[in-house]
């Protein structure tokens, strides 16, 4: 289900080292094509529910689906291998389109340390907004939505994350993100 390249023990070792050095790692072509497509298909079967708290967020929330549950064991093993300790995961499935965003919120300032996200997206122009941004004392980390990519981020003490407002140039395009910690 996860691209077999990432399950190779030598590659795992490289990823572990890279994560330790950079505090983040991005893995393109993360799931096998059939699993990626099934995931998208199953999510699209749901209508999702628009969630908005104006001073905090706006997005579409989807229910958990079976294929993600099936995937989670393999995923938690991989994450554990990269960060060097076992993890217990939780995640949300959300959709972001025009007028959606999340804002940095005080209650999240001392948030979770390790975060991950997986994206299913049409070809995306970052001028549409929707980038996932990690800010802190260093240069911000900016992740443009990229289909079938997986990112793992070690949020240092002073780091906050948000999803940039998506502007009208996105038209009817939207992407799906599985966010977890």
């Amino acid at each position: 289900m996860i691209n077999p390249i990432y399950l190779n023990s030598e590659v795992k070792e490289q990823m572990k080292q890279s994560f330790r050095e950079n505090g983040m790692i991005k893995l393109p072509n993360f799931l096998t094509r059939d699993v990626h497509n099934k995931l998208l298909e199953d999510i699209k079967k749901q209508e999702g529910k628009g969630e908005k708290v104006p001073d905090r967020f706006s997005f579409r929330q989807y229910n958990q689906i079976k294929i993600v549950k099936d995937l989670s064991k393999q995923l938690s093993e991989l994450i554990s291998a990269i960060i060097g300790k076992t993890v217990k995961m939780q995640f949300n499935i959300r959709g972001y389109g025009h007028r959606d965003y999340t804002l940095i919120h005080d209650s999240e300032l001392s948030g979770k340390k390790i975060e991950f996200f997986y994206v299913i997206s049409p070809p995306w122009d970052s001028a549409w907004g929707g980038n996932k941004v990690y800010t802190g004392s260093d240069e911000p980390l900016v992740f443009a939505p990229e289909d079938n990519s997986f990112c793992l981020v070690d949020k240092r003490k002073d780091m906050n994350s948000f999803i940039q407002y998506i502007n009208h140039r996105a038209g009817n395009n939207s992407y799906i993100i599985l966010e977890g910690f």
Binding site: P54, D55, Y101, L103, G129, N167, H168, R169
Partner: peptide, 9 residues
């Protein structure tokens, strides 16, 4: 075009 200021008090 595309600029905004989101909800705050």
């Amino acid at each position: 075009d595309t600029n905004y200021l989101l909800c705050h008090d």
